[in-house]
Design a protein around this nucleic acid. Structure first.
Length: 702
DNA sequence: GATCCTCGAGTTCG
DNA sequence: CTCGAGGATC
């Protein structure tokens, strides 16, 4: 019999996915011995470390690397006899590559131990406080943990003379000419005020690409039809390791500094003073650093940034808590290579890699086939993701996504995760390219790709999945709004044969519903009451509910307002339709076509008989003279007191218009908590940005 | 004819 | 939120 390895090691299975040398199924065998496991971990970590530091081509994410590292640390803590002098926990793996001159750092460029929860931070504090009583009265500085490339900058008598990458922490690569192209790097420390630049001064900083610069750069590249970059960190790292500084200069690299590695002629006692002095000397320093007298306040500050991380100009993967007193911090010493005087409080990773196990296909209510990725479950942005949309089949081909690939998965400020692309370096050759299906995955009928369109369609009108989606849409919130009628029930009633088209929901009875699973008690009664209430929905909603391709909420409302009744719409000519703003020849033809189909005619007759047939539509009078007359608004994020709908109503009542996407024609962007890419776009376009309070202020009708 | 804009459609997890 | 497509606009 075949058994999987025990769950303790199950985690590594998903981290390595298909990696061929990493067998997870061992015939009738127990878990590997700790010594074997440690050796294997060391080998893996060494390999990944080399890829990361030397090749700048990691195949696993930082979070996964951290997890491996932690596992090895834990294993070595449990079995100290396993610790070898060459273990990576004793010495940082990877060495400087041959391309550049090597520079020995004046002092080791240390990394930090990580905490993934507030309790781990408290445990760290207790550990160091037991070592040294002074810690109990210590203050802390909290800074963002900037996700960039560590650089070490040497100054002599105020002049920038040398710059290096971190390398293995002892020896880095000299990339001075490249660093000189970084605009925010001071080439000379200015002699201002009372302080003279120190004789020697070695600064540690992080080379980053600001999010807005990164997006602008990618937008330019996309426009020019060139390949875009995957993320700011890899781009910055690659750019700094170019042999030709001109290539570096072409990338919008910035710098943020946070430590002094070595100094002569100026001594600093605290981290806070270090940051202030760096600022005073003209080095770019984060504005998000704060000083705290006690740990709990520091922890609270860390946590507050988890939600706000998008509001920073640069990417961070956590916060760092440092004991402010640098002498005390130094006295505490090290654990392995990690100083005890500071800890990194890591946020859940938002970009991870995982294995793409397969590609599935969904059928939408219009028959569109949408591929989705079936992923080895991974934690990203705090939730476990198993699936992600792949948008369409062109997307798969363009990104060259293959089954069995390791893929980079992102869950940005938004909620929905998506696959950025394959990790080419992790290819083993066993990946299979994907071909769009020739048959509908649910009904088996042939699929069609209309000329000039990207999408493939299942054209079988009787396709069961299409019907289920269609019913879901009909009863959905934006359309007929039948409370308590969700996708589960839609599937049940269709599969039981109770509903063959949307009109059938109005002939559902107690008796019929009670035959379904889970319909005991008052559930059927409640559902029927909700359906009853939906009979009298206004025309606009019914039109949207029909699911005519290309007719959504907005167009349906326009059609309803112009034509006034279901009868008028049903018999409208092409000419009548094209006269309506937003309807062109294509949409008009689609609408007329829909009404001409026999199945749809039957549906309409049934609806009419069921009394679902609105005849009068009154357009809500737009307040022409309101304070927002002629102005366009876009709402993003979560507003403090208004719901989306309330905010929309507030604006519309005052004559304003609310749209979904920011453009040059947008007058105001109303921002709430956790605003996403719309904010960035609005800033780029110079659109006025207001919050809810300002909106209320502007809309005050006095 | 090209460009900008708006709308629609599908979407993840808890 | 993302992408594609149709419509409006210059």
């Amino acid at each position: 019999m075949f058994v999987k390895t025990a769950s303790v090691y199950g985690r590594s299975r998903q981290q390595f996915g298909h990696a061929a040398d990493y067998s997870v199924i061992i015939p009738g065998m127990s878990t590997p011995a700790p010594a074997e496991r440690a050796a294997r971990l060391r080998q893996e970590i060494q390999q990944h470390s080399h890829r990361y530091h030397v090749l700048s081509a990691p195949v696993i994410s930082d979070a996964e690397y951290d997890a491996l590292y932690k596992e090895l640390q834990a294993l070595e803590a449990q079995y100290p006899e396993l610790v070898t002098p060459d273990s990576l926990t004793q010495r940082v793996g990877g060495a400087a590559s041959e391309k550049f001159e090597k520079v020995r750092h004046p002092a080791p460029i240390l990394s930090l131990s990580n905490a993934f929860s507030t309790d781990e931070v408290r445990a760290w504090f207790e550990r160091v406080a037991r070592l040294d009583d002074r810690v109990r009265g210590a203050g802390f500085v909290v800074e963002p943990k900037i996700d960039g490339l560590t650089v070490v900058l040497h100054y002599e008598n105020g002049a920038f003379v040398r710059g290096a990458t971190r390398g293995d922490g002892e020896v880095g690569e000299e990339v001075t000419p490249n660093l000189r192209t970084v605009r925010s790097l001071p080439l000379r420390i200015p002699v201002t005020g009372k302080r003279k630049p120190p004789k020697r001064w070695v600064v540690r900083g992080e080379a980053v690409i600001f999010t807005k610069d990164f997006e602008a750069m990618n937008a330019r590249l996309a426009e020019a039809g060139e390949r875009t970059f995957v993320n700011p960190r890899n781009t910055a790292s690659g750019a700094l390791r170019q042999l030709d500084p001109k290539l570096t200069a072409a990338r919008p690299i910035s710098l943020l500094c946070y430590a002094v590695v070595d100094a002569e002629g100026l001594a600093l006692d605290t981290q806070w003073a270090t940051l202030e002095t760096l600022r005073e000397f003209g080095f770019p320093v984060t504005s998000a650093a704060r000083r705290f007298a006690d740990l709990e306040a520091a922890i609270a500050y860390c946590e507050s940034w988890n939600d706000k991380r998008d509001s920073l100009d640069y990417e961070i993967d956590g916060m760092v808590i440092k004991i402010d007193d640098l002498r005390l911090a130094a006295d505490l010493g090290f654990v392995g290579k990690d100083p005890r005087g500071a800890i990194a409080f890591k946020f859940p990773a938002r970009e991870v890699t995982t294995a793409l196990n397969d590609i599935g296909v969904n059928v939408g209510r219009t028959g569109v086939l949408t591929p989705f990725a079936i992923l080895e479950p991974v934690e990203v942005g705090g939730v476990t993701v198993r699936q992600a949309t792949l948008h369409n089949f062109d997307y798969i081909a363009e990104k060259d996504i293959r089954i069995g690939d390791r893929v980079l998965l992102k869950r940005a400020g938004d909620v929905i995760p998506y696959v950025i692309g394959p990790v080419l370096e992790a290819r083993t050759g066993d990946e299979r390219p994907y071909k769009p299906p020739q048959k509908c995955p649910t009904c088996g009928e042939a699929v069609e790709q209309p000329e000039g369109e990207v999408a493939y369609y299942c054209i079988n009108a009787a396709c069961p999945d299409q019907l289920i989606r269609n019913i879901e849409h009909f009863v959905g919130r934006g359309t007929m709004d039948v409370e308590g009628f969700g996708s589960k029930i839609a599937e049940q009633v269709v599969k039981a044969g109770l509903v063959k088209d949307a009109a059938d929901i109005f002939s559902l009875t107690d008796k019929k519903l009670l035959t379904l699973e889970g319909f005991a008690g008052k559930k059927a009664e409640n559902l029927l009451a909700s359906i009853e209430a939906a009979r009298s929905r206004p025309l606009a909603r019914l039109v949207a509910a029909l699911g005519i391709h290309g007719v959504g909420e907005v167009l349906a409302a326009d059609l309803a307002a112009q034509l006034g009744s279901m009868d008028a719409l049903q018999h409208a000519s092409d000419e009548d339709l094209v006269a309506i703003e937003g309807v062109g020849p294509n949409t008009a033809a689609t609408i007329a076509d829909w009404f001409a189909r026999p199945g749809n005619k039957r549906l309409l007759n049934k609806l009419k008989k069921a009394g679902v047939w609105p005849t009068v539509e009154v357009r809500p009078g737009a307040a022409a003279g309101g304070p927002f007359a002629g102005q366009t608004f876009v709402i993003t994020g979560t507003l403090p007191d208004f719901s989306r709908e309330q905010a929309r109503a507030f604006i519309e009542e005052r004559g304003g218009k609310v749209t979904d996407s920011v453009s040059k024609k947008t007058d105001y962007l109303v921002v709430g908590e956790a605003a996403g890419s719309k904010l960035t776009k609005a800033q780029a376009l110079g659109v006025k940005i207001i919050d809810e309070a300002a909106l209320r202020e502007l809309g005050n009708i006095d």
